[in-house]
Design a protein around this nucleic acid. Structure first.
Length: 423
RNA sequence: GUGGCUGUAGCUCAGGUGGUUAGAGCGCCGGGUUGUGGUCCCGGAGGUCGGGGGUUCGAGUCCCCUCAGUCACCCCA
């Protein structure tokens, strides 16, 4: 009796060519980040539950119903990270990284976990790359962070990109605004639907996301957050937009762009893809978080960062037809016919030692079958180690693209192969 | 958490109103070629028809439940 166990809902395996694309994407992200002065750090995938509750916010959907929380054997409440910024800020505070000079700039990436219902571009274990810049309050730093993400996405070859930016001001400005906003919406729309009513109660800014046409209309005529901002917030935002202009980065100001995490303040932004449908078109997003470091027990320092969704970027790349072709995983495959398995493996070992990606056939199969395997492997060269040849001290090299064959002595195999595939 | 659609071989899919041993293409394995792949020809293996229950003489087909995928709501990456 065997029971077949499948992967849990919302998780999946990355195999074959997808693995290569993932690795490639990851490499390119961290290379870009490093180029901009954001070296990679590695932080844990679980943290004390309290960290996320306090930083992400109790009123958010993430904390209310999407966290993978568990008790460990010491009865500590731990949570699989639903996002990366909280852990990064904790890391910054825990190691007093402000002492190393500000801003502290770093990149991170890896799996995140949210117990959401699954759909295209949305999984329970999903993956993000992100950067954070903590400790300096300068709109130019906002621009740098936004530009970094933009440059990375553009360099992948994505064309259908829109950068959305907004500012949600300081907490006290927002508090003032939220009151007038709630008041306005309730007056303008009698019989508000329960979803929107709940939003007004828990997290009023989120009504800006409403799709109820009556609410949308009420918002259009209602107070705008930007109009109630103080001079400082206003000039900061203006400076960010000027910086984007100067950097030649196109953007749209979107009054309704409100990020779903409580720690955001001031500048918020999102990279949207034009090729994905409207529901899951956000490739990534981020913003300022000016009270978070202090709330985590550090000095009162501002921060800004973004996170990109790996799965969504790959979907966008696929829609835009820019996924890289992936050829075989080896360049050379060694076949053997007759009693030559041992010398065949010795040749393979020599090639591998020299850094040549090499596979070798196992089992006792016909040469024809071995060639089929060689063909499928995507290797460029097959080395045939045959009894007849070996008696003369040579092996046969076959170019699998052209079918051309040549002989090589045992001493010259490695060199000849390196010449062929080295180009 | 709620709703719509879908679930047959490794993959993509056929299988009117329920009726014998469930099919195709691609892929895989073997042979044609006693040491030569990607073309061609021949043969073969491979299926709890997502799972469970029910109706029926009989269920891949009808009903219920359940699981999974997908899309949408919600929310976000």
């Amino acid at each position: 009796m065997s029971i077949r166990i499948s992967a849990p809902k919302g998780v999946y395996d990355v195999i074959g060519a997808d693995t290569v694309r993932w690795d490639d994407l990851e490499t390119r992200f961290f290379e870009t980040a490093a180029t901009w002065g954001y070296p990679r750090v590695r932080i844990p995938v679980f943290e004390h539950t309290e960290l996320f509750v306090r930083s992400v916010g109790e009123a958010t959907d993430i904390v209310r119903k999407e966290m993978y929380t568990f008790s460990d054997r010491g009865d500590r409440s731990l949570t699989l990270r639903p996002e990366g910024t909280a852990g990064m800020v904790r890391c910054f505070v825990e190691h007093s990284l402000d002492q190393a000079g500000l801003p502290w700039k770093a990149a991170y990436g890896g799996p995140m976990f949210r117990a959401e219902n699954v759909q295209r571009g949305r999984y329970r274990q999903f993956h993000q790359f992100g950067v954070e810049a903590i400790g300096v309050d300068d709109p130019a730093l906002d621009v740098e962070v936004i530009a970094l993400g933009w440059a990375f996405l553009r360099h992948l070859g994505l064309v259908e990109l829109t950068l959305l930016v907004n500012t949600i001001g300081r907490p006290e400005e927002r508090a003032r605004y939220v009151e007038v906003l709630a008041d306005h919406v309730r007056k303008a729309v009698p019989g508000l639907d329960p979803d929107d009513e709940e939003r007004l109660e828990l997290n009023p800014l989120r009504v800006l996301d409403s799709r109820d046409p009556r609410v949308v209309e009420a918002l259009a005529t209602g107070p705008r957050l930007r109009d109630v901002l103080g001079d400082e917030s206003r000039s900061h935002f203006g400076a960010v937009l000027d910086g984007l202009d100067a950097a030649g980065i196109p953007y749209e100001v979107d009054d309704t762009l409100v990020r779903g995490l409580d720690y955001y303040t001031s500048t918020t932004f999102e990279y949207a893809s034009g090729t994905l449908d409207s529901a899951q078109n956000a490739l990534g997003g981020g913003g300022h978080y000016d009270g978070l470091v202090e709330m985590c027990g550090g000095p009162p320092l501002p921060g800004i960062g973004f996170a990109l969704g790996v799965e969504r970027i790959l979907i966008a790349c696929e829609s835009e037809g820019i996924l890289a072709e992936v050829r075989g995983t080896v360049d050379v495959i060694v076949l053997h016919v007759g009693e030559t398995a041992v010398p065949a493996r010795r040749i393979a070992a020599e090639l591998r030692e020299a850094g040549v990606r090499t596979d070798v056939v196992f089992g006792n199969r016909s040469l024809k079958a071995q060639f089929k395997q060689a063909d499928r492997s995507g290797a460029r060269v097959a080395v045939v180690v045959g009894e007849r040849d070996m008696e003369r001290g040579v092996v046969t090299l076959r170019d699998l693209d052209t079918g051309e064959q040549s002989e090589a002595t045992l001493d010259s195999v490695r060199q000849e192969i390196e010449e062929v595939i080295g180009s």
